[in-house]
Amino acid sequence: MGTVEHIGRGAGRISGDLGDLIPSPRPRARPPAPSKDPVRTAVRTFGEVLITLGIVVLLFVVYEVYWTDVISAGKQKDATTALDDKWQQEREEHFTGLGEGDGFAKMYIPAFGADYHFTIVEGTTAASLEIGPGHYTQTAYPGQSGNFAVAGHRVGKGAPFNDINLINSCDAIVVETADNWFVYRALPKEEEKAGWAEGRGSEAQCKGVSVLGGPYENVIGQQIVPPTDGSVIAPVPGSDVVPSAGEQAALMTLTTCHPRFSDKERLIVHAVLVKQWQKDPGKQGWTPPEMKETA
């Protein structure tokens, strides 16, 4: 008897379902609410959390590679404006009283194109390096004997030193200060040292660039060092010998991270001062001929 009733109810449901297939003025029943199965909810939430974390990581990449560039471009522009104002007011050169993050010089690498210019700020804290290349405070200043050492980001934050691995020997790094233009040129690379004077060293661009001797004999144009190697910014890079002021060469050193997107090592570029152009107040807008050495 129960079976018969069961069949009867089932039959009724089947006919009702069929009835739903043809248009009917009756409102359709809402689909049943999703089950409140706790396992299902937990699995779905777990999946959603994973997707969210993936999006956060992607956002971090956007932040690191693009967004910090936008922020730093604004800060670099402000620093450049402040430096231009300062140079308008006082034209004598002094590097005293510089605060952390104050701009004091501009650098150009003509081989990277006419649009490559950065205002160098004092100090190498994270906040300073966000503005632009930062000067290691205890090292020499532009034009002075000793080692004018500058650190810069390679990825994000304006990435001023993104391509410094592409600096060839003899490429000019021009540094502009309140009343001077200083022309540094990258030193010979390790593999170029042998036969430098007869080879690349004889090219016109390389005038003034030689394989350095004495305590400087191990200083080369480009090297990769572990992060702990602070000696690359010493007056004699790679050595703790400190010659008397009169015997020191005037060098410039750039440091950045290596390889890109990693801080496992440091990429170092050494250059030597080859020329100084005094600015002529009567000739505003004059630039030294080295600025036209665009590749």
């Binding site: 971090f60 932040y63 690191e64 390679r154 030193f161 602070g230 690359v232 801080d263 440091r266």
Partner: peptide, 23 residues
């Protein structure tokens, strides 16, 4: 919140972008 607070805070703790040598 991520772009202006969390990432700037987290970035120095990550091994990506140290450009200076130890002095």
């Amino acid at each position: 919140l991520l772009m202006f607070v969390v990432f700037p805070w987290a970035e120095p703790l990550l091994p990506f972008n140290n450009v200076t040598t130890e002095q």
